[in-house]
Design a protein around this nucleic acid. Sequence first.
DNA 1: CTATGTGAATCGATTCACAGCC
DNA 2: GGCTGTGAATCGATTCACATAG
Lengths: 227, 227
Amino acid sequence: MIGSIPKATAQRISLYLRQAEMLRDQGQTTVASEQLAAAFGLTAAQVRKDMAHFGQFGRPGVGYRCEELIAQLRRILGTDKVRSVALVGCGNLGRALASYQGFEKRGFRIVAVFDSDLQKVGKQFGRHIVQDIVKLPFVCRRDSVHLAILAVPASAAQDVAEQLVRAGIQGILNFAPVSLEVPAEVSVVNVALSVELEQLGLAVRLKQELQHSKPAGDERSRGPTAG
Amino acid sequence: MIGSIPKATAQRISLYLRQAEMLRDQGQTTVASEQLAAAFGLTAAQVRKDMAHFGQFGRPGVGYRCEELIAQLRRILGTDKVRSVALVGCGNLGRALASYQGFEKRGFRIVAVFDSDLQKVGKQFGRHIVQDIVKLPFVCRRDSVHLAILAVPASAAQDVAEQLVRAGIQGILNFAPVSLEVPAEVSVVNVALSVELEQLGLAVRLKQELQHSKPAGDERSRGPTAG
DNA sequence: CTATGTGAATCGATTCACAGCC
DNA sequence: GGCTGTGAATCGATTCACATAG
């Protein structure tokens, strides 16, 4: 059912949702495929194909109703209900993530913060008190936590990931620059900050190489210009 | 020349580099396609195709020489020389990014930190002193800064991005959850933290849907299990 | 007349299978 | 024997073009 959504489409759902919410907040009640496409450097046809996978709720001559679209996309992402998340690792990055407002706004709630460093356990951390990581299984079961954010040093990442798995976590958002080895039934999404920066550097180089041949126009573009 | 590298391949270069460096540090002198593939959930054939784009320096019966591979990948990414980066925005996230060691390790050096909030200007910030954002054009030109990390609130992002463009920045790593509108000659890579979390949630849902049908084995996997 | 939904065509990326080299 | 490099085949995603609905 939602499993039939192509991978490429799935990766765009979040973008459509964000844009639809933005337009709704600006007072629009409907949005055309053309308009969604422009925001991310896609084509209108591509957007319509994607939408068709979610069921057909576009009105020819009008577009998609923002509210309907938002509700539908949230249902697919599973963020129509608030989901609990555990944060592991209280370094600089962990601190920033713990206080990041964006997660709450989009249906995720950090319900507990852990660290394996006993020096940090018991300390206040935003609105949380840092807990010993051995409490993880108990808390995850008690509070139905299925997702975890892993913000520990690379050297500790694999070990902590295994503790997360044993605690029953089903998905790990991994900020450590290592590839985690986990059982097949656990999902991992890697956010490698320096990889993103490398991709940016490469995109800049490629663009310059291109513009050596064809002299540039002056158009404005939007969306990831780096692929 | 490097422009002929397919998009999909380009996105894997950083991963190969990371893995090659890790294996080298563990004492390996060569690495086989099979081994690189396993680390990220790819196939060996795919890795070999990718490598072929970088020029043929694999040895049949042996594999790829780690040092050679690392040097080549760094050259393509442009991180064989250290590149200067400006950081704009000194909130929680900016603070974490400023002190993030991973950037330095991979050839990027944050040479200046800016904020538009005059309360913050002049304050110490890691090893940097926060500068007024109006100094940006001067500093970028003086220090040949072509890349910037944008870690300001969503409401300020577009405005600051335009200042970056006017200052001569060619690439923006954007942490604000908005799609920036920039001239075509400027590259943008978006890192949307809540989008990543949404993708993780979706991946978990999809995996469960699958496992309702086919009962699971006990294999271990690596690499992004979320596409 | 405007904008969706969709088959058909195109494009690109992955997988297969094997010849050639160490 | 082991592993690369690569054409051929397959698979998936994007683009095109148009019939259809409001």
